[in-house]
């Protein structure tokens, strides 16, 4: 009963909100227009740059993580690419200043949600693509949060299908 009431209120609010503002949200002001597709083609001594090269927590931690500025500068101390990106110098300038140079995490789980990359990547053996889509083809940073990653129904559907635990405290706090 309570759930029904809540749903009604929610639906009402949703209607009001959606009708009230149609203007699309502006994209987050990232320090640079970041191109994933170029980066995954970069050849290193040991092969191409992997997702986990820059998001090392994906295999062993809760958070995939974004690299620190110093990590970017390992390559970008010198101009890269041919021709180099016209805005690449911003990385070096931020490095010289010591910051700030902050990537904005566009999709963030709410505070009461716990999500572990390690559990999904190392244990459940999901690939990055399974949840994030084909990031390797992205030429720009995402403009809006990825709804597929924020839907509890999707989480639960997959957990049920794979027999993963579904108690509240698996994912909530």
């Amino acid at each position: 009963m309570r759930r029904a009431a809540l749903l009604a209120v929610t639906a009402l609010l949703a209607g009001v909100v959606l009708v009230g503002c149609r203007r699309p949200s502006p994209p987050p002001p990232q320090p640079l227009p970041f191109d994933h597709s170029i980066h995954v083609r970069v050849e290193l001594d040991q092969g191409t740059l992997q997702c986990t090269s820059c998001h090392p927590g994906a295999e062993r931690g809760a958070h995939a993580g974004l690299p620190a500025l110093a990590y970017c500068l390992r390559c970008h101390m010198r101009p890269q690419g041919d021709p180099p990106s016209p805005r690449e110098h911003l990385v070096r300038e931020a490095g010289a200043r010591g910051g700030p140079f902050r990537w904005i995490q566009v999709t963030r789980e709410p505070g009461h949600v716990y999500f572990s990359h390690a559990a999904h990547v190392s244990l459940a053996k999901l690939t990055c693509k399974d949840c994030h889509g084909d990031v390797t083809s992205w030429q720009a940073a995402p403009k809006a949060p990825n709804q597929r990653l924020l839907s509890m129904d999707r989480c639960l559907a997959c957990h049920r299908a794979r027999g993963a635990p579904t108690h509240c405290n698996t994912c909530h706090q």
Binding site: A14, V17, L150
Partner: peptide
């Protein structure tokens, strides 16, 4: 309502 629709407005 979902974070997405909230973000949209």
């Amino acid at each position: 309502l979902g974070a997405g629709s909230a973000a949209a407005c």
